[in-house]
Simulated scan of single mutants.
Amino acid sequence: MATSQSTLLLQKQLNELLKHPVEGFSAGLADNDIYEDYPLMPPKLRFVSDMWHPNVYPDGEHPPGEDKYGYEDAGERWRPIHTVETILLSVISMLSSPNDESPANIEAAKEWRENYPAFKKRVQRIVRDSIG
């Protein structure tokens, strides 16, 4: 029963996002697999180009639960009230305003803090390579 309710919820949210797209991102199902633990667990995100960012894991996941560095509690990391749109807007916000105190990529966070010009140059190169 819970699976069918979460399926309906996710389908409704994805359909709403298709009807009213938000500039800068898109959302869909990988392999049309709608059977997941959403909304109790966060959906998995996947970046299709390389990323160099303090808060992006190489596999694109942001695991639920307590932050191993102690900067965020479980409630700050995931809440089942989030919709597909609010999740993606949060990701856009995170990309533009990194939190280097709770890094997923420690090397990127270190470069962000200690050598921002080199960090910015690396990100610009990755963007240039992804579109060229």
Rank of each mutant, 00 (worst) to 15 (best):
A2T: 12
A2G: 13
T3D: 12
T3K: 13
S4F: 11
S6L: 03
Q13D: 05
N15Q: 14
L18N: 13
E23R: 15
F25G: 02
S26N: 10
S26T: 14
G28V: 03
A30P: 00
I34A: 09
I34F: 11
Y35V: 10
E36R: 05
E36D: 07
D37A: 14
M41L: 14
R46I: 12
F47M: 09
F47C: 06
W52C: 01
N55Y: 04
V56D: 00
P58I: 11
D59W: 00
G60A: 07
E61V: 04
E61K: 03
H62Y: 08
P63Y: 12
Y69R: 07
A74V: 05
R77K: 09
R79C: 11
I81V: 12
I81R: 03
I81W: 04
H82D: 10
I87Q: 04
L88A: 07
L88V: 05
V91D: 03
S97C: 13
D100H: 11
E101L: 11
S102E: 05
A104S: 12
I106N: 04
A108V: 02
A108N: 00
A109N: 02
A109H: 02
K110S: 03
R113I: 08
R113W: 08
A118V: 09
R122E: 04
R122N: 04
Q124Y: 10
R128A: 14
R128P: 00
D129M: 10
S130Q: 09
I131D: 08
